[in-house]
Structures are given as structure tokens and as C-alpha cells.
Amino acid sequence: METNTRLVVKVDQDLEDIAPGYLENRRKDVGLLSTALEQNDFNTVKMIGHRMKGSGAGYGFDFISETGSRIEQAAIARNTPIIRDCMDQLTDYLDSIEVIYV
């Protein structure tokens, strides 16, 4: 999705070395989630959501933790539309985020 709106997120400068890699891994998560959904593998979806929930805010990305939590809950409910909605939102977030290290 094309967007002109940049979403500025302030991240601890001590995490400057690892935060870009963390965001890159979330892009990979979107692919993994898509594959898992095609296979109705809700356990994997739940596990990915659980890990996003546990780690996102630690790196400074609260939205990732919130989205991970919603994915985890949707996986428990086997609710594919909500999971897909979360994946879209996550992709938008990753496309629009601008990280400033403070």
C-alpha cells in the first residue's frame, strides 16, 4: 500500500543496532502468517502472535505488541478474517514507520 503519511516512532538509541532487523523479521512474519493460514495452522499463527505481543513494545514498537495480541486471540478463535486484517495493518505499519533513535 502506498502511503504518504510517515509514522514516527522513537526508539531507545541502545537498540539502534537491532531494531531494523527486528522490523525486517516482522515482514517475514507476515509471510509466515499467510502460509500458516493457507494450511489452517492456527497453532503457528498463535505462536507468531504471542511472540510479537511479547517482544514488540520491548523494542519500542507498541503497535506490534498490540497487533500480536489480537492475532493470538484471533488464532485461538480460529478467526481468519481478523488475522488477515491484522496482517494488512501490520504491513501498513511497517511501510509507514520512521524510526528515530533517542
Binding site: D14, L15, I18, Y22, R51, G54, S55, G58, Y59
Partner: peptide, 16 residues
């Protein structure tokens, strides 16, 4: 078991 949590703690604590 989450490698990214381990990396987060390791990186941050080593810098401190």
C-alpha cells in the same frame, strides 16, 4: 525460547 527477546536483552545489557 524467543530468540528476539534474548537478542534484545543481550544487546541492551552488553551495552550497559
Amino acid at each position: 525460547d524467543d530468540q528476539e527477546i534474548c537478542q534484545l536483552i543481550a544487546d541492551f545489557f552488553q551495552k550497559n
